[in-house]
Amino acid sequence: MSATSDIARSTGSRDFWLGFAAYLLPTFPIAFIWHLVLFEQKYRALHIYRDEPIIAFGLGSMIIQGAIFSWLFPRVFNRGSDSFVKDGLLYGLGAGLLSWSFTTLAVGAKNVMASVPDFVLLETAFTILQFAIVGPLIALAYRR
């Protein structure tokens, strides 16, 4: 059985694609504006990013993340919950913590930068914002 047929069978392909869109559509503009507009100078001062980011790689990683986070949601939460907001915030907390562990902690541990605490602060705030938005949206996508 393929992953695609597993998705369609267990959650409905419509729900999966809505959950995928609920992750990708807000994440890309939030990440772009956060990293390349609002806090561009702070990130430049950290001296960890290239002068010209490869936007396609960022989008590609978000596509993979969106598929995984959408696929995972119905396996973590039952459909009968009373509150998609509560489920979404709880899901966002768990998914955000996982994401934070490899986008913030691991990067801070491995990369040379001007200030690890500044990087951790910026990325933590970004991750909280991102998953406070996408968690409830993914839960809404799976709501019946």
Rank of each mutant, 00 (worst) to 15 (best):
I7D: 06
A8G: 10
A8S: 13
R9L: 11
R9A: 14
S10F: 06
T11D: 09
G12F: 01
S13N: 11
R14I: 13
D15I: 00
D15K: 14
F16N: 06
F16H: 02
W17N: 03
L18P: 02
L18S: 02
L18E: 08
L18K: 04
L18Q: 11
G19P: 05
G19A: 04
F20E: 08
F20Y: 07
F20V: 05
A21D: 02
A21R: 09
A21V: 10
A21M: 06
A22G: 07
Y23G: 10
Y23E: 03
Y23M: 13
Y23K: 03
L24A: 05
L24M: 02
L25D: 00
L25R: 04
P26R: 00
P26Y: 00
P26D: 09
T27M: 04
T27N: 04
T27V: 04
T27C: 04
F28K: 01
P29N: 01
I30H: 04
I30D: 11
I30V: 11
I30F: 07
I30E: 07
F32D: 01
W34P: 08
W34C: 01
W34I: 04
L36Y: 10
V37S: 09
V37T: 10
V37R: 01
F39A: 11
Q41D: 15
Q41K: 14
K42M: 13
R44E: 03
R44Q: 06
A45G: 14
A45P: 09
Y49H: 12
Y49L: 13
Y49G: 13
Y49S: 14
D51M: 07
D51Q: 12
D51G: 15
D51E: 14
P53E: 07
I55T: 12
I55W: 11
I55P: 06
A56Y: 13
A56K: 05
A56P: 05
A56N: 06
L59T: 05
L59N: 06
G60I: 02
S61D: 13
S61C: 12
S61K: 10
M62H: 05
I63C: 08
I63W: 01
I64V: 15
I64T: 08
I64N: 08
I64E: 06
G66K: 00
G66M: 05
A67S: 09
I68R: 03
I68D: 03
S70Y: 05
S70W: 04
W71L: 13
L72C: 00
L72Y: 01
L72K: 03
F73V: 10
F73K: 08
P74Q: 10
R75F: 04
V76L: 05
V76N: 05
F77D: 09
R79H: 07
R79M: 01
G80F: 06
G80H: 07
S81Y: 01
D82C: 07
D82N: 13
F84G: 07
G88T: 03
G88K: 06
L90D: 01
L90H: 08
L90R: 02
L90T: 09
Y91F: 13
Y91L: 00
L93I: 02
L93K: 00
G94L: 08
G94N: 01
G96V: 06
G96A: 07
G96M: 09
L97Y: 08
W100I: 00
W100V: 09
S101T: 12
S101H: 01
F102Y: 15
T103C: 12
T104M: 11
T104D: 10
L105F: 12
L105T: 05
A106K: 12
A106W: 14
A106M: 15
G108F: 05
G108Q: 08
K110T: 14
N111L: 15
V112R: 13
